[in-house]
Structure formats: C-alpha cells, structure tokens
Simulated assay, not measured.
Amino acid sequence: MSNPQQQFSAGQARGVGVAQADKWVGSETNSLQAHRSDAAQSVEETKEQAAGLLQQTGEQVKQMARGAVETVKNTLGVGDHNNSSRS
C-alpha cells in the first residue's frame, strides 16, 4: 500500500493533468468553432459569387436570344425597321 503522501501526490498529478486536458480541449473547441465559422462564411461568399455569375450569364443568353430573334425578323422582312418604312 502507498502512504498518504504518495496518494496525495498521485491525486495532485491527476488533478493537474485533468485541468490541463480541460484547458486544451476548450482551446481546441474554440479553434474548431472559429474554423467552422470561417468555412461557413467562405461557403456563403462562394454561393453569392455563383449566383451572381449565373445571373450575369442568364442576362447574356437573353441578349443573344433577342439579337437572334431580331436577325431572323429582319431577314424575313418583319423586323421593326421594316414595319416603320411601310407606313
């Protein structure tokens, strides 16, 4: 059997170890939360950029389609400038 001094020292060492482990876990938890927050921010920014790019591309496609329709109308003689010259 160990004497009371050895038991005290062992208990003290255990207590210090537990306190250090708790401190480390708390520090790691805070670090992980910060990384998670940064990652969420990055994802949100990426989603916003993608949405902006899709909107811009959609506008370009609409303009190209309008141009194609006007070209076809003009080729067939039903474009706006042809209608106004017939009046």
Rank of each mutant, 00 (worst) to 15 (best):
E70H: 04
R86V: 14
R14M: 07
A51Y: 12
Q41E: 09
D80Q: 10
S37F: 00
W24Q: 15
S85Y: 11
M1F: 10
Q6T: 08
T29C: 04
Q63M: 11
Q56K: 11
A10W: 00
P4F: 06
S84Y: 03
D38R: 12
Q55D: 15
E45G: 04
D80S: 12
E48R: 14
K62W: 01
E28S: 04
N74K: 15
V16Y: 01
G79I: 02
A34P: 04
V43C: 01
A21L: 11
E48V: 08
Q20W: 02
D80W: 00
Q63K: 14
A10M: 02
A39T: 09
Q55M: 05
V69I: 13
P4V: 07
V78L: 09
A19W: 05
Q12K: 08
S2D: 12
G17F: 08
S84W: 00
Q55N: 12
Q12M: 11
T46C: 04
T71Y: 03
G79R: 01
R36L: 09
K23Y: 06
D38L: 09
H35C: 04
N30H: 05
K73T: 00
Q56I: 02
T57W: 13
A19C: 03
N3K: 13
A34R: 08
G26N: 13
S31G: 15
M1D: 03
K23W: 02
F8M: 08
K73A: 13
A40G: 00
S2R: 10
Q41R: 13
A34G: 04
E45R: 12
G15A: 11
Q6E: 15
K62N: 07
E48L: 13
M64S: 09
Q6K: 07
L53M: 10
A65R: 05
Q33S: 03
G15H: 08
Q20R: 15
L76M: 14
D38N: 10
T75N: 11
Q6S: 11
H81V: 10
G52T: 02
Q7K: 10
S2A: 14
S27A: 10
G17Q: 13
V25K: 05
Q33I: 04
V61S: 03
V69E: 14
G58A: 12
Q63G: 00
R86S: 12
V61H: 06
Q55F: 00
D38V: 05
A65H: 03
N3W: 10
N74H: 09
G26F: 02
Q49I: 02
S27R: 08
S27F: 02
V18H: 07
G52A: 09
H35P: 00
Q56P: 00
V61L: 15
T46R: 12
G58T: 06
T71V: 03
Q33L: 07
Q5Y: 05
L54M: 11
T71I: 02
A40K: 07
D38G: 01
D80I: 07
G67S: 09
R66S: 11
G15K: 09
Q60G: 04
S85D: 13
A39G: 01
V78T: 15
V78D: 08
G58S: 13
G79A: 15
F8R: 09
K73Q: 15
N82A: 12
T71P: 00
D38T: 07
N74A: 09
T75C: 07
R14T: 08
A21E: 08
R86M: 12
Q33W: 02
V16E: 13
V16N: 09
Q33M: 05
